[in-house]
Amino acid sequence: MTEQRWQQVSEWPLMLAAVAFLGAYAWTVLGPPVGASAQFAGLIMWVTWVVFAGDFVVRLGLAPRPGRWLLRHLHELAMVVLPMFRPLRLLRLLRLLRLVTLLGVLQRSAGAAVRGRVVLYAAGSTLMLLIISSLAMLDAERGAPGASIETYPQALWWSTVTVTTVGYGDFSPVTITGRAIAVALMVAGIALLGVITATLASWLVERVGEQDEANQAATRAQVADLAAEIAALRAQLSTHDARDR
């Protein structure tokens, strides 16, 4: 089996694992659960970790050049090995979101489909990033000395003003993990603004082009009408001249 074939086979199981991990992770951060509930949530997170770790090992074994493949996928290794990067496993859900938005715009024209997919994907990705980053930030900051982010609404507010590059500064991370999350979210916010700006510019250019084409068509029609009227007047003048002679 090739690496590409393995990715096709494991795509949906990994997405389901990411959904299960999201539920368990949110439960442990917002709850937190105790007793049997905590054990159950921990079991789900361990199972999903095994799934992602197994996928990483299989893909490494199937790679034609394992050393080069490992260097190109160090972020996935960090997601598996380092607990602080475990929320990054949820980014797998963005691929599911991309598939959903693609299926939702297949009936449109080519230009509208691409633009609609970009808008839906950007909006969905933003919402997913806000949820994930807020959970990760609360998990990293809550209980830390001098931390100002102690509740999920505070974390969600911080994520919103950060991803939009506003940054009021009323809440800010104090831990190394929290600041790493902040850097990643700021980069994502800049990329998001770029996507939205490019999509809006594309729509405006297309609308202006359509309006310009409509105006040109109307102008051509008027010129054709004037030419026909001139030709008719010339024919009438020629007829009158012939009669006068």
Rank of each mutant, 00 (worst) to 15 (best):
W12M: 10
A224N: 15
G35W: 07
E206A: 15
P83H: 05
L94M: 10
G169Q: 02
R86I: 11
Q7W: 04
G23F: 13
S148F: 00
V163P: 01
R220V: 15
L102I: 11
Q154F: 03
R142F: 08
L204M: 09
F171A: 04
V51W: 07
R5E: 05
A180K: 15
R220P: 12
T239S: 13
R207L: 14
A78R: 12
L97A: 07
Y152N: 06
I131G: 06
A110Y: 02
G23S: 05
P87Y: 04
A218N: 14
D241K: 12
D244Q: 09
Q154P: 03
L138P: 03
F56I: 07
A147E: 14
Q7F: 09
V161A: 03
G194N: 08
L77Y: 11
R142N: 13
I132M: 08
G178H: 00
V34S: 12
A136G: 05
G111R: 11
E210T: 09
V183G: 09
S202A: 15
L77M: 04
E11P: 02
E141Q: 00
L93V: 01
A144Q: 13
A112N: 11
A228Y: 05
E11K: 11
I190D: 15
F40A: 15
R89I: 02
W69F: 06
Q154D: 05
S148W: 00
T197Y: 12
D139A: 08
Y25H: 11
V47C: 08
G35F: 07
G35H: 04
Q7K: 13
L91T: 05
Q107A: 15
A201T: 04
P13Q: 02
I230S: 09
G31K: 10
A224V: 13
G194C: 12
V166D: 09
G54D: 00
L103K: 01
P66K: 10
